[in-house]
Design a protein around this nucleic acid. Sequence first.
RNA 1: GUGGGCGUAGCUCAGUUGGUUAGAGCGCCAGGUUGUGGUCCUGGAGGUCGGGGGUUCGAGACCCCUCGCUCACCCCA
Length: 409
Amino acid sequence: MHDVLWPESARWERLVARFAALVEGAGYGLAITPIVEHVGIFNRGIGEGSDVVGKEMYTFVDRDGQVMALRPEGTAPVVRAYVQHHPVPPWKAWYVAPSFRHENPQHGRYRQHFQLGVEALGPSDADLDVEVIALAFDFIASLGLHQVILKVHSMGNEVCRPGYVELLRAFLAEHRSQLCGPHQARFEQNPLRVLDCKTPECEDVTEAAPRFVDNLCEPCAAHFARVRAGLDALDVPFVVDHRLVRGFDYYTRTTFEFASGAIDAAQNALGGGGRYNGLVEMLGGPPTPGIGFGLGIERILIACDAEGVFATEAPPLHAYVIDVTGGESAVLLTAELRRAGFRVDRGFDGRSMKSQFKSADHSGALVALVIGDRELAEGTVGLNPLRSDGEQRDIPRSDIVDELRALLS
RNA sequence: GUGGGCGUAGCUCAGUUGGUUAGAGCGCCAGGUUGUGGUCCUGGAGGUCGGGGGUUCGAGACCCCUCGCUCACCCCA
């Protein structure tokens, strides 16, 4: 858990605004779903055997005795909302929302983190996979990130996956003694997880293991081929990662992940996603294909820092009002300027001219507007350019808005 | 869930084998300049030394417990 304060928070606003503009331009609408859901929403789709469900969910019993969970990811709640409200497909939604995982924090991994994402329900068309992946890629690229690797894979469907899993299980059984310690004991429960293991022992074994892409059924193979062709056509660079096995059970066919090469840490995954053609049914809806992705805002910003792009910059104030005549004039002038659309702050507590000027300087404002006894008597305001060398000028009180507008244009 | 590291002023950190009233730099406030910031000088405010318990004549320091942060493992965003 961590706080995000000004001016870092201004960067978050820009990031989210950019994402919203991009995906809304592709037909996605904002979906706001509750932070808490019945725990079953997550158990059913993500999978009882996954780490997220097994040991990372923030669950609690509410006053009615129901087991609730703070959402650990963004897809399941949006799909639940689809099932509940049955909008007409194709239905495209995007979200920005906090997610929770009860694990020990470290750099780039938080118990509460924010995810940006989209979900598209209805079409099974591979072209939709291409659209979704390209949106995520374009967003990441628009931030200025270059050292990002897009990994794509296909995990087949209910037709071909069981056969492949058995093939892999048999292969791993033959090489059991060469696997890492933990996997020698439990590779049979979920052979796919061994592909994801980063120990040199397991990597040596899986390097020669049968590959999913060689064992896809005909429709899945055709789907994957079209996805790759589409990404090529859009100049979205990617690698096929035969070890890419994402942690949630609901994925079918296309899966993908973005990893930063600029982050020197284990937490280099910026986000990922995939197709989940069975999830809507699992949550009680009609058979409906779907695909989506989630991106971790904190991770993306860490990557931006690492690459020196998308820096924190807070929009400056236009003006800072200094009033040493009691404050009534500042109340009026500040309100008038704000109503005219300017970004304005002011000094309070009747502090000295000198100290209000210091505050004006520290506020970052472009100009100071000074009201002293003389200006008050003459009906003027002193306009002092804080960011350039010009002299302070007296402006008639009634001309201030026009003067500022001309100055800042 | 497992294993390290760290908690002293708003921030970054000193603080000797346990020994007067816990310090510095930066920041903040004020004055120098009775109407002017960004430079300079002077002064000032600000601390239950994360919390609780213990050892001791005496604890910021040593011991135990606890909370928080942090890094790594597992896994993930």
